[in-house]
C-alpha cells in the first residue's frame, strides 16, 4: 500500500510540475505570439510617409502620423518638466530629510496616487487645465502624464539614494562638507545612473498612456503650434484609427502600434543596460 501511495505521490508531483511548466510556456507563447504578430504586421505597414506626412482626410489612402510623433514628444517633454523635478525632490525629502510622520504621509499619498486609474488623472487634468483655459492643449496632456510620473519618480529616487553606501556620506561629512553639499556632490552623483534609469522607465510607462490624453491633449489632424493647442499623439491615434471602419487606417494603426512598442521596449532595455553598468553595484 505504501508503495502505491508513493507511486501516487510521484504521479501528482510529475503532473503538477508539468502543469506549471505548461503555464509558463503557454503564457510566454501567447504573449510573444501576439507581439510577434504586431511586429510583422507593423513592420509591413510602415513606410517613410508614416514619419513625414500628416494624416490624410477620411477616405483618402496614404499619409502618415508625423504630427502625432512630434505631439507625443512635446507632451512627454512637458510631463518630464512637471513630474520629474517634483518627484525627484520628493524622493530626496523621503530619503534624506523626512521624519517618521513625514515619511508615512508622503509614502501613503504617493502610493495612493500611483493607484489612481489613468482615466481619473485625465479627468483631473481636464478640470484643472482644460476647463479654465477653455481649450484642449499639450499643456493639459503634459500635466496629466506628469502627475502620473510623480509617484514612481519619488519611489525610485528614494530607493537609489538609500542604496548609496553610508561610508560615502560619512567620508564627505568628515571632510567638513555640509549635508546639502554631501547630497549634491556625492550622494546624488553616486545614485545618478539609478535615478536616470528610474526616469527612463517612468517615461516609457507614460509614453503609451492613452486614457489621460483623450480629453486633455485631445487630438489634431494637423500640426499644432506651440503647446496651447489640441495635439495629436501616437497612442490616441492608435485608438482612433483602430476603432475606425477604414482598412487603410487599420494599417496605419498597426504601424503606429509598432513604432510605439519599439519606443517603449527600447527605453526599457536602455534603462536596464544603464543600470547594469552602474558603479553603485560595485560599491555595494
Amino acid at each position: 500500500m505504501s508503495a502505491a501511495r508513493l507511486r501516487r505521490r510521484k504521479l501528482v508531483n510529475a503532473v503538477m510540475l508539468r502543469t506549471t511548466g505548461a503555464c509558463a510556456i503557454g503564457i510566454a507563447a501567447v504573449l510573444l505570439g501576439i507581439l510577434g504578430y504586431l511586429f510583422l504586421n507593423g513592420i509591413g505597414s510602415l513606410s517613410l510617409d508614416f514619419f513625414t506626412q500628416l494624416p490624410k482626410p477620411v477616405g483618402e489612402t496614404g499619409g502618415g502620423m508625423a504630427n502625432a510623433i512630434v505631439g507625443s514628444a512635446k507632451i512627454l517633454g512637458m510631463a518630464v518638466v512637471v513630474g520629474v523635478p517634483l518627484g525627484f525632490l520628493g524622493g530626496v525629502y523621503l530619503a534624506e530629510y523626512a521624519g517618521a510622520t513625514g515619511q508615512f504621509v508622503v509614502r501613503y499619498v504617493t502610493d495612493l496616487l500611483n493607484g489612481v486609474p489613468s482615466i481619473v488623472i485625465g479627468i483631473f487634468a481636464y478640470a484643472l487645465v482644460v476647463l479654465p483655459a477653455k481649450q484642449f492643449s499639450a499643456y493639459a496632456g503634459g500635466v496629466a502624464l506628469g502627475m502620473m510620473m510623480i509617484p514612481i519618480a519619488v519611489r525610485s529616487t528614494e530607493e537609489f539614494l538609500r542604496a548609496v553606501p553610508r561610508g560615502l556620506r560619512e567620508a564627505a561629512l568628515a571632510l567638513g562638507a555640509p549635508k546639502w553639499k554631501v547630497l549634491v556632490t556625492v550622494v546624488v552623483p553616486a545614485a545618478r545612473d539609478g535615478i536616470i534609469t528610474g526616469i527612463i522607465l517612468n517615461l516609457a510607462r507614460v509614453a503609451g498612456e492613452t486614457a489621460p490624453l483623450l480629453f486633455t491633449a485631445f487630438s489634431n489632424r494637423f500640426w499644432s503650434e506651440g503647446l496651447n493647442e489640441p495635439t495629436a499623439t501616437l497612442p490616441v491615434m492608435i485608438y482612433t484609427y483602430a476603432i475606425s471602419p477604414y482598412d487603410d487606417w487599420h494599417r496605419q494603426a498597426w504601424a503606429a502600434g509598432f513604432v510605439l512598442l519599439m519606443l517603449v521596449v527600447t527605453m526599457n532595455i536602455a534603462a536596464r543596460m544603464l543600470m547594469a553598468r552602474s558603479p553603485l553595484r560595485g560599491a555595494r
Partner: peptide, 13 residues
C-alpha cells in the same frame, strides 16, 4: 579641523 579615515576605505566613485 578634525579629519577622519574609516575602517572600510570609502573612495567616492
Amino acid at each position: 579641523r578634525v579629519g577622519m579615515v574609516f575602517q572600510k576605505s570609502n573612495p567616492f566613485p
